[in-house]
Amino acid sequence: MKSQQSFKYVFLVLLGILILCFILNLSLGSVSIPLDEIFSSLLGGSTEKSTWHYIIIEYRLPKALTAICVGSGLGVAGLLMQTLFRNPLAGPFVLGLSSGASLGVAFLILGAGAFGGVLTQVLIGEWSLVFASAFGSFLVLLAVLALTFKVRDTMALLIIGLMFGSLTSALVAVLSYFSNAEKLQQYVFWSFGSLGNQSWKGVSILGIGVIIGLFLAFRSSKSLNALLLGENYAKSMGVRFKRTTFTIIIATSILAGTITAFAGPIAFIGLAIPHLTRQWVTTANHTILIPAVLLLGAIVMLICDTVAQIPFSEQTLPINAITSLVGAPVVIWLLVRKRKLLF
């Protein structure tokens, strides 16, 4: 088909931009490092100053890779939810997955204060944060899954997702009322979201989670296309509906769960990226949309991170503030210009 061919250029352009953004992201930061030094440290060569090598390999590179994982993973998770729930406003946040993750972390950080003393030291480590977050989103996922088969109405399901979000913030508010200022600050910083300070071990776990999620998503792309026609049509064309739904929800929760655990709740990427992608890639075919969303998500996240870093300055802005500043106007612009969000 003609259309299949013309999308090749879109992919090439997106890939080119991604590489540019990746290099830009690596080269900008509080310390200015010449471009050729960046390449030589990436390729394992020696650098003029050993600190430069350290900054690139131990700080900027993990951060850039995290940005790529977060952007592509959340973008695709949003796309999956929009198709599955037949709602252009769906996303990992709307479904309450990220709220669940937040609640897990809130219980860990804020609740740990209640045990006091030695136990607190044991409980609050990098790893326990990850598990708390993944466990929280998994619990919400189970609840949503149970409701999927009980409530057929997708609109009701979205509202339930929103209610999960409200419940979570209420519980967090209660927890924070009883916790001390130090713990509260720790939680608030996590909830700002952050791409930096990831160990290589953390990045590889994140990478594995995202790759598994993306793989499951891409495997389902044919069924996702059929789901665009609605449940009944999809079934009549041979889609095993429950199995497909289950795979899609698992893929989304793996993506959202792992990402939230490592980077905190990142807003708007899951919602805005699929819509932005549809502006250029005018197809509903998921075999094309998924890779395109993946690339654009990574690009936008790298740009957001570059901006958050405030080049040549010591300051770093919370990444969540930047994604909201970018994402919210995009959604409003699409609504005003197109009058409706298509999916």
């Binding site: 198709t83 037949r86 789901l227 665009l228 026609l229 609605g230 009944n232 049509y233 549809r278 005018t282 197809t283 509903a284 409706k340 298509l342 999916f343």
Partner: peptide, 9 residues
């Protein structure tokens, strides 16, 4: 029923 997706050609 019409298809869910409005974007489908």
């Amino acid at each position: 029923e019409a298809p869910n997706s409005k974007n489908l050609r």
